[in-house]
């Protein structure tokens, strides 16, 4: 696992049935793009989070394919429809195989 990677999610704790709520996510990650060179002129290998998903009770909300042009500490803002009480599941996939997860419960 890359060092110091910590996910953060901002989601409301409660909502009306069928309400659309805004979600913000931020994860600490340097997102090494693979385009930079070190002081010896050698390319620094790419090391990024390449995919982010959000599901609610197992049903998909958003699935993002990410490339090296996403900034350090990737940030996303999007809307979710909350049909019932349940869990929002957030998953980030690292190039190195690590998977970072976060869960937020929403009460209707």
């Amino acid at each position: 696992m890359a060092e110091g990677v910590r996910p953060r999610v901002k989601a409301p704790g409660s909502a009306e049935a069928g309400e659309i709520v805004m979600i913000k996510t931020l994860i600490s990650h340097k997102m090494e793009s693979g385009q930079r060179r070190d002081s010896d002129g050698d390319l620094i290998p790419r090391s990024i989070i390449n995919r982010f998903t959000c599901d609610f009770n197992g049903t998909n909300v958003l699935d993002v394919e990410m490339h090296g042009a996403i900034s350090t500490n990737p940030y996303f803002e999007f809307d979710v429809k909350i049909p019932e009480s349940g869990d929002l599941q957030f998953t980030w996939y690292d190039d190195d195989g690590s998977v970072y997860e976060e869960v937020k419960s929403v009460k209707v």
Partner: peptide, 12 residues
């Protein structure tokens, strides 16, 4: 604070 990436450092 959520939009502020500096808060990642403060949290740490």
């Amino acid at each position: 604070d959520f939009d502020n990436p500096a808060m990642l450092g403060a949290e740490n």
